[in-house]
Amino acid sequence: MSCPGERKTFPRAMLLLLLSFLFSITPVSKTNEENITFAYFLPTVEFAVNTFNQKSQEEYAYRVEHVLSSWREEVNFPTVYSMKLQLRRTLCKQFEESLDTCPFQMSYSLNNTFTCLFTIGTFPWVTQFKLYKYVCL
Results as ranks from 00 to 15, higher is better:
Y81N: 05
Y108C: 02
R89L: 02
S107N: 14
M83A: 05
R88V: 04
Y108A: 05
V80P: 03
Y81L: 12
K93D: 09
E73V: 13
N76R: 05
E96M: 13
F95T: 06
Y108M: 10
K84Q: 11
L91G: 09
Y108S: 12
V75I: 14
S98W: 08
T90F: 01
E74W: 09
Q105P: 01
Q105V: 03
E74V: 12
K84N: 08
Q94S: 13
F77Y: 11
L85W: 02
Y108D: 04
P103E: 12
D100L: 11
K84M: 08
L99F: 07
S107Q: 13
T90S: 04
W71G: 12
Q105F: 02
C92H: 02
K84Y: 02
F104K: 03
T79Q: 05
V80T: 15
R89C: 02
V75G: 03
P78F: 02
Q94G: 05
E73Q: 13
R72A: 07
K84G: 00
M106F: 10
K84D: 08
T90G: 05
N76Q: 12
N76F: 15
L91I: 14
F77C: 01
L85A: 04
P78T: 03
S69C: 07
D100G: 13
C102D: 07
P78M: 07
L91W: 06
S70E: 13
L99G: 00
M83K: 00
Q86R: 15
R88G: 00
L99A: 01
F95S: 14
L91D: 10
Q94L: 11
Q105C: 03
V75L: 09
Y81V: 06
L99S: 04
D100V: 09
D100E: 12
Q94E: 11
F77R: 06
S107C: 04
F77E: 09
C92I: 08
Q86M: 12
E96C: 09
E96V: 07
Q105L: 05
V75M: 07
E74D: 15
C102N: 05
V75W: 06
E73I: 07
Q94W: 07
Q105G: 05
L87Y: 01
F104D: 01
M106L: 15
V80M: 10
L87F: 04
S107A: 10
N76M: 10
E97P: 08
N76W: 14
D100S: 13
K93T: 13
T90D: 00
C102R: 04
K84R: 09
P103K: 04
